[in-house]
């Protein structure tokens, strides 16, 4: 029983890590309608940025979050403006190839600059474990959970309450109608991609103390992030959050009770079942909206 509860705690913490990575992907996919295969590499860029700020200036990763979020926003804006925008009316396959190409280019750039070794931010305060009775949880994990919840609620409020948020939702629902209503669709796309990338910036600052940076670190997370996004119904922030929690829990429990090397099999099996019985995802809005 004790182990089971510890596994539940770990699963929720793992889920919050997946959630915070998936939120940005959901935003980009939901609004710009681009499957961003370079998402994991944006995370990698963010983690190296956090590492460099730590190494050169001794900045704590949580403080580094601010400049890194801004940096990633700008990178997102540039990617949308100069890579995706020119291809907006092209076939979706072309857009996918563009993001895959970007992903490969970024991985190799990191290999050239940093080499294949891993680098780690040293933040012992974040890695301290708090003990509640016989249960343990890291301070960094609690911060991650809190940030994931705040980010999802904050983004949701932003989408519902602000003019920009409404314009983004309008663009997501119907690009042409939004255009006719006077929404500057191109600019909305640029901002949305920037916001999605900025979310990854936040994720990289929170993950850096817990996980070392390598050129391929993005690939460790991104497949799971795609599963989470589809499971959550493609465009729903809350859907992504709960999808991530489900994957986190399944990951943690199946690795213990079944086998660590079979956990992917288990959650992909669940994923396939959900797609068969509820093709729009758990929180999807129904056919035709995705």
């Amino acid at each position: 029983m004790e182990v089971f509860l510890q596994l539940l705690i770990n699963g929720i913490m793992l889920g919050s890590m997946y959630a915070i990575i998936s939120v940005g992907l959901t935003l980009i996919f939901g609004v710009v309608r681009v499957v961003n295969f370079a998402h994991g590499e944006l995370l990698m860029v963010g983690m190296y940025a956090v590492y460099l700020l730590f190494l050169k200036f001794g900045i704590h990763p949580y403080i580094a979050a601010l400049p890194v979020v801004v940096l990633l926003f700008l990178i997102g804006v540039l990617i949308q403006r100069f890579i995706i925008q020119p291809l907006l009316n092209a076939d979706e396959h072309i857009q996918i190839f563009a993001t895959v190409g970007l992903s490969t280019a970024l991985v190799n750039l990191a290999l050239m600059v940093f080499g294949a070794d891993l680098y780690s931010v040293n933040a012992p305060d974040v890695r301290r474990s708090l003990e509640f009775g016989s249960f343990r949880v890291l301070i960094g994990q609690i911060v991650m959970l809190g940030s994931a919840i705040a980010l999802v609620i904050g983004l949701h409020a932003f989408m519902q309450k602000t003019t920009l948020g409404r314009a983004i939702r309008a663009t997501a629902q119907n690009r042409n109608a939004a255009l006719l209503m006077g929404v500057k669709v191109d600019r909305i796309y640029v901002i949305s991609f920037g916001l999605g990338a900025a979310c990854v910036g936040l994720a990289s600052a929170l993950i850096s103390p817990l996980f070392p940076a390598t050129p391929t670190v993005g690939t460790y997370f991104v497949l799971t992030a795609f599963v989470v996004v589809v499971l959550g119904g493609m465009r729903s922030m809350y859907g992504a959050f709960f999808g991530a929690m489900i994957i986190g829990l399944v990951d943690s429990l199946s690795a213990y009770y079944i086998a660590p090397d079979l956990k992917e099999v288990v959650y992909f099996a669940i994923f396939i079942l959900i797609l068969i019985f509820k093709p729009t995802g758990l929180f999807g809005l129904g056919r035709g909206t995705e």
Partner: peptide
Amino acid sequence: TLPYSAKTVDLTPVILRLKS
């Protein structure tokens, strides 16, 4: 005897099994 993927982001289940 526990195999796991080198790309895993979490080894706590493995460690909990060793601990148990």
